[in-house]
Protein backbone atom coordinates (compact mmCIF):
# COMPACT_ATOMS: atom_id res chain seq x y z
CA UNK A 1 0.00 0.00 0.00
CA UNK A 2 1.38 3.38 -0.82
CA UNK A 3 -0.83 6.23 0.30
CA UNK A 4 0.57 9.73 0.46
CA UNK A 5 3.10 8.96 -2.20
CA UNK A 6 2.18 11.14 -5.12
CA UNK A 7 0.88 14.66 -5.31
CA UNK A 8 -1.98 13.26 -7.29
CA UNK A 9 -3.16 11.53 -4.18
CA UNK A 10 -3.80 14.81 -2.38
CA UNK A 11 -5.94 16.20 -5.17
CA UNK A 12 -8.02 13.06 -5.19
CA UNK A 13 -8.32 13.27 -1.45
CA UNK A 14 -10.01 16.67 -1.71
CA UNK A 15 -12.48 15.20 -4.13
CA UNK A 16 -13.15 12.34 -1.78
CA UNK A 17 -13.96 14.72 1.06
CA UNK A 18 -16.71 16.24 -1.06
CA UNK A 19 -18.17 12.82 -1.54
CA UNK A 20 -18.06 12.27 2.13
CA UNK A 21 -20.17 15.35 2.83
CA UNK A 22 -22.76 14.28 0.35
CA UNK A 23 -22.86 10.76 1.71
CA UNK A 24 -23.18 11.84 5.33
CA UNK A 25 -26.57 13.39 4.50
CA UNK A 26 -27.62 10.25 2.76
CA UNK A 27 -26.65 7.87 5.52
CA UNK A 28 -28.33 10.05 8.16
CA UNK A 29 -31.58 9.60 6.30
CA UNK A 30 -31.03 5.92 5.90
CA UNK A 31 -30.52 5.46 9.61
CA UNK A 32 -34.19 6.14 10.18
CA UNK A 33 -35.21 3.43 7.76
CA UNK A 34 -34.70 -0.26 8.12
CA UNK A 35 -31.57 -2.17 7.35
CA UNK A 36 -31.47 -5.48 5.67
CA UNK A 37 -28.71 -7.76 6.88
CA UNK A 38 -27.29 -10.73 5.09
CA UNK A 39 -25.17 -13.16 6.94
CA UNK A 40 -22.54 -14.42 4.62
CA UNK A 41 -19.43 -16.41 5.21
CA UNK A 42 -17.40 -15.64 2.15
CA UNK A 43 -13.67 -16.13 2.25
CA UNK A 44 -11.82 -12.93 1.41
CA UNK A 45 -9.58 -14.94 -0.85
CA UNK A 46 -12.44 -16.75 -2.54
CA UNK A 47 -11.30 -15.62 -5.97
CA UNK A 48 -7.84 -17.07 -5.32
CA UNK A 49 -9.14 -20.34 -3.93
CA UNK A 50 -11.43 -20.79 -6.92
CA UNK A 51 -8.44 -20.64 -9.28
CA UNK A 52 -6.39 -22.84 -6.94
CA UNK A 53 -9.07 -25.51 -7.34
CA UNK A 54 -8.80 -25.28 -11.13
CA UNK A 55 -5.03 -25.78 -10.88
CA UNK A 56 -5.53 -28.79 -8.61
CA UNK A 57 -7.88 -30.38 -11.14
CA UNK A 58 -5.46 -29.80 -14.03
CA UNK A 59 -2.63 -31.33 -12.03
CA UNK A 60 -4.78 -34.31 -11.16
CA UNK A 61 -5.48 -34.91 -14.87
CA UNK A 62 -1.80 -35.30 -15.69
CA UNK A 63 -0.74 -36.67 -12.25
CA UNK A 64 1.86 -33.94 -11.98
CA UNK A 65 3.14 -33.33 -8.46
CA UNK A 66 2.96 -29.61 -7.63
CA UNK A 67 5.18 -28.27 -4.87
CA UNK A 68 5.15 -24.72 -3.54
CA UNK A 69 8.58 -23.68 -2.25
CA UNK A 70 8.55 -20.77 0.20
CA UNK A 71 11.12 -19.07 2.39
CA UNK A 72 12.66 -15.72 3.23
CA UNK A 73 14.69 -14.06 0.51
CA UNK A 74 18.15 -15.53 0.16
CA UNK A 75 17.67 -18.81 1.99
CA UNK A 76 18.64 -20.96 -0.97
CA UNK A 77 15.47 -21.80 -2.90
CA UNK A 78 17.02 -21.38 -6.33
CA UNK A 79 20.21 -23.23 -5.38
CA UNK A 80 18.03 -26.07 -4.08
CA UNK A 81 16.11 -26.10 -7.39
CA UNK A 82 19.41 -26.36 -9.30
CA UNK A 83 20.70 -29.16 -7.08
CA UNK A 84 17.39 -31.05 -7.25
CA UNK A 85 17.38 -30.72 -11.04
CA UNK A 86 20.92 -32.11 -11.29
CA UNK A 87 20.03 -35.06 -9.08
CA UNK A 88 16.65 -35.95 -10.55
CA UNK A 89 16.65 -34.92 -14.19
CA UNK A 90 17.72 -38.36 -15.40
CA UNK A 91 15.04 -40.09 -13.33
CA UNK A 92 12.03 -37.81 -13.83
CA UNK A 93 10.93 -34.78 -15.82
CA UNK A 94 10.76 -31.69 -13.70
CA UNK A 95 10.13 -28.02 -14.33
CA UNK A 96 10.09 -24.85 -12.28
CA UNK A 97 8.13 -21.64 -12.30
CA UNK A 98 9.75 -18.97 -10.23
CA UNK A 99 8.28 -15.75 -8.89
CA UNK A 100 10.21 -12.56 -8.21
CA UNK A 101 9.39 -8.89 -8.13
CA UNK A 102 11.80 -8.17 -10.98
CA UNK A 103 14.42 -9.77 -13.29
CA UNK A 104 14.67 -13.20 -14.86
CA UNK A 105 17.83 -14.13 -13.00
CA UNK A 106 16.47 -17.15 -11.14
CA UNK A 107 14.89 -18.74 -14.19
CA UNK A 108 18.16 -18.34 -16.10
CA UNK A 109 20.09 -20.03 -13.27
CA UNK A 110 17.66 -22.94 -13.17
CA UNK A 111 17.61 -23.34 -16.97
CA UNK A 112 21.40 -23.77 -16.90
CA UNK A 113 20.82 -27.16 -15.29
CA UNK A 114 18.93 -28.23 -18.42
CA UNK A 115 15.35 -28.17 -17.20
CA UNK A 116 12.47 -25.92 -18.20
CA UNK A 117 12.08 -22.84 -16.02
CA UNK A 118 9.74 -19.89 -16.41
CA UNK A 119 9.93 -16.62 -14.58
CA UNK A 120 6.84 -14.91 -13.21
CA UNK A 121 7.67 -11.24 -12.69
CA UNK A 122 5.18 -9.96 -10.14
CA UNK A 123 6.15 -6.32 -10.62
CA UNK A 124 6.09 -5.42 -6.95
CA UNK A 125 3.57 -7.91 -5.61
CA UNK A 126 5.02 -9.71 -2.59
CA UNK A 127 3.53 -13.14 -3.23
CA UNK A 128 2.28 -15.39 -6.03
CA UNK A 129 -1.46 -15.76 -6.46
CA UNK A 130 -3.20 -18.73 -8.01
CA UNK A 131 -4.20 -16.62 -11.00
CA UNK A 132 -0.54 -15.91 -11.85
CA UNK A 133 0.32 -19.60 -11.66
CA UNK A 134 -2.67 -20.58 -13.76
CA UNK A 135 -1.76 -18.06 -16.43
CA UNK A 136 1.63 -19.66 -17.12
CA UNK A 137 0.47 -23.23 -16.68
CA UNK A 138 -0.23 -23.77 -20.38
CA UNK A 139 3.42 -22.98 -21.14
CA UNK A 140 4.30 -26.36 -19.63
CA UNK A 141 3.79 -29.70 -21.30
CA UNK A 142 2.15 -31.10 -18.17
CA UNK A 143 1.45 -34.49 -19.76
CA UNK A 144 5.19 -35.11 -19.69
CA UNK A 145 6.09 -33.40 -16.42
CA UNK A 146 6.25 -35.47 -13.24
CA UNK A 147 7.18 -32.71 -10.88
CA UNK A 148 6.46 -29.00 -11.10
CA UNK A 149 7.94 -26.64 -8.56
CA UNK A 150 6.59 -23.18 -7.81
CA UNK A 151 9.42 -21.17 -6.34
CA UNK A 152 7.48 -18.48 -4.51
CA UNK A 153 8.56 -14.91 -3.84
CA UNK A 154 11.04 -14.82 -0.95
CA UNK A 155 8.76 -13.82 1.93
CA UNK A 156 7.45 -15.71 4.94
CA UNK A 157 4.32 -13.57 5.35
CA UNK A 158 1.93 -13.12 2.42
CA UNK A 159 2.66 -16.32 0.46
CA UNK A 160 1.34 -18.30 3.44
CA UNK A 161 -2.23 -17.12 2.78
CA UNK A 162 -2.42 -17.95 -0.92
CA UNK A 163 -3.24 -21.50 -1.89
CA UNK A 164 -1.67 -22.19 -5.29
CA UNK A 165 -3.30 -25.58 -5.69
CA UNK A 166 -0.11 -27.29 -4.55
CA UNK A 167 0.10 -30.84 -3.24
CA UNK A 168 2.74 -29.91 -0.68
CA UNK A 169 4.18 -26.74 0.71
CA UNK A 170 7.87 -26.82 1.54
CA UNK A 171 9.51 -24.03 3.54
CA UNK A 172 13.23 -23.45 3.62
CA UNK A 173 14.73 -22.15 6.83
CA UNK A 174 18.37 -21.20 6.39
CA UNK A 175 20.81 -21.56 9.25
CA UNK A 176 21.89 -17.97 8.58
CA UNK A 177 18.41 -16.67 9.37
CA UNK A 178 18.37 -17.57 13.05
CA UNK A 179 16.50 -20.41 14.71
CA UNK A 180 13.67 -18.24 16.07
CA UNK A 181 11.68 -17.87 12.85
CA UNK A 182 8.85 -20.44 13.15
CA UNK A 183 7.19 -18.57 16.04
CA UNK A 184 7.70 -15.23 14.31
CA UNK A 185 5.98 -16.39 11.12
CA UNK A 186 3.62 -19.05 12.49
CA UNK A 187 1.15 -19.16 9.60
CA UNK A 188 3.81 -20.20 7.13
CA UNK A 189 5.02 -23.05 9.31
CA UNK A 190 1.47 -24.07 10.21
CA UNK A 191 0.55 -24.42 6.54
CA UNK A 192 3.76 -26.18 5.46
CA UNK A 193 4.28 -29.91 5.17
CA UNK A 194 8.05 -29.90 5.17
CA UNK A 195 10.72 -27.66 6.62
CA UNK A 196 14.14 -27.86 5.04
CA UNK A 197 16.86 -26.49 7.31
CA UNK A 198 19.07 -25.20 4.51
CA UNK A 199 22.71 -24.07 4.40
CA UNK A 200 23.48 -26.83 6.91
CA UNK A 201 27.14 -26.66 5.84
CA UNK A 202 27.33 -23.35 7.75
CA UNK A 203 26.17 -24.85 11.07
CA UNK A 204 29.68 -24.86 12.57
CA UNK A 205 29.97 -21.13 11.98
CA UNK A 206 26.58 -19.73 12.96
CA UNK A 207 24.73 -19.61 16.29
CA UNK A 208 21.86 -21.77 15.06
CA UNK A 209 20.38 -24.79 16.78
CA UNK A 210 18.58 -27.32 14.60
CA UNK A 211 17.06 -28.76 17.76
CA UNK A 212 15.69 -25.35 18.82
CA UNK A 213 14.23 -24.54 15.38
CA UNK A 214 12.63 -27.98 15.18
CA UNK A 215 11.11 -27.61 18.66
CA UNK A 216 9.80 -24.14 17.79
CA UNK A 217 8.36 -25.36 14.49
CA UNK A 218 6.78 -28.43 16.06
CA UNK A 219 5.02 -26.30 18.68
CA UNK A 220 3.30 -24.57 15.76
CA UNK A 221 2.83 -27.65 13.59
CA UNK A 222 3.56 -31.05 15.07
CA UNK A 223 3.12 -32.78 11.71
CA UNK A 224 5.86 -30.80 9.99
CA UNK A 225 8.59 -32.98 8.54
CA UNK A 226 12.15 -31.72 8.90
CA UNK A 227 15.23 -32.40 6.78
CA UNK A 228 18.62 -30.81 7.34
CA UNK A 229 20.05 -30.00 3.94
CA UNK A 230 22.95 -28.32 2.16
CA UNK A 231 22.76 -27.92 -1.59
CA UNK A 232 26.47 -27.10 -1.63
CA UNK A 233 27.87 -30.00 0.42
CA UNK A 234 25.12 -32.40 -0.65
CA UNK A 235 24.05 -33.22 2.92
CA UNK A 236 20.39 -34.28 3.05
CA UNK A 237 19.92 -33.94 -0.71
CA UNK A 238 19.38 -37.68 -1.20
CA UNK A 239 16.83 -37.74 1.61
CA UNK A 240 15.03 -34.76 0.02
CA UNK A 241 15.06 -36.35 -3.44
CA UNK A 242 13.78 -39.66 -2.04
CA UNK A 243 10.93 -37.75 -0.37
CA UNK A 244 10.09 -36.17 -3.73
CA UNK A 245 10.25 -39.47 -5.63
CA UNK A 246 8.03 -41.05 -3.01
CA UNK A 247 5.44 -38.26 -3.35
CA UNK A 248 5.58 -38.49 -7.16
CA UNK A 249 4.95 -42.24 -6.97
CA UNK A 250 1.99 -41.62 -4.64
CA UNK A 251 0.53 -39.02 -6.99
CA UNK A 252 0.79 -41.37 -9.92
CA UNK A 253 -1.00 -43.93 -7.76
Amino acid sequence: MRPCQSGNFKIKSVRATKYKKKMVDKSTKAARGTVQCENTNINLLKANDFVADIIKKEMAKTSTLLINITSSAGSGKTTLMQKTAEKLKDKITMAVMVGDLETERDAIRIRETGIQALQIVTGGICHLEAQMVHQVLDQFDLENIDLLFIENVGNLVCPSSFDLGEDYRVTLMATTEGDDKPKKYPKMFLTSDMMLVSKADLLPYVPFSVEAVTKDAHEVNHELEVIQISALSGEGVDEWCDWLLDKIAQKKG
Binding site: A30, G33, V35, Q36, C37, E38, N39, T40, N41, I42, N43, L44, L45, S161, L190, N221, H222, E223
Partner: peptide, 17 residues
Protein backbone atom coordinates in the same frame (compact mmCIF):
# COMPACT_ATOMS: atom_id res chain seq x y z
CA UNK B 1 -3.41 -28.39 14.47
CA UNK B 2 -7.19 -28.33 14.75
CA UNK B 3 -7.66 -24.55 14.62
CA UNK B 4 -11.30 -23.65 15.26
CA UNK B 5 -10.83 -19.90 15.42
CA UNK B 6 -8.16 -17.42 14.41
CA UNK B 7 -7.60 -18.37 10.76
CA UNK B 8 -10.71 -16.65 9.41
CA UNK B 9 -10.65 -14.20 6.54
CA UNK B 10 -14.38 -13.82 6.17
CA UNK B 11 -16.95 -11.37 4.93
CA UNK B 12 -19.42 -12.56 7.50
CA UNK B 13 -22.16 -9.95 7.24
CA UNK B 14 -23.26 -7.29 4.77
CA UNK B 15 -25.90 -4.64 5.40
CA UNK B 16 -28.13 -3.10 2.76
CA UNK B 17 -30.42 -0.12 3.00
Amino acid sequence: KNVIQGEEMLIHKVEFE
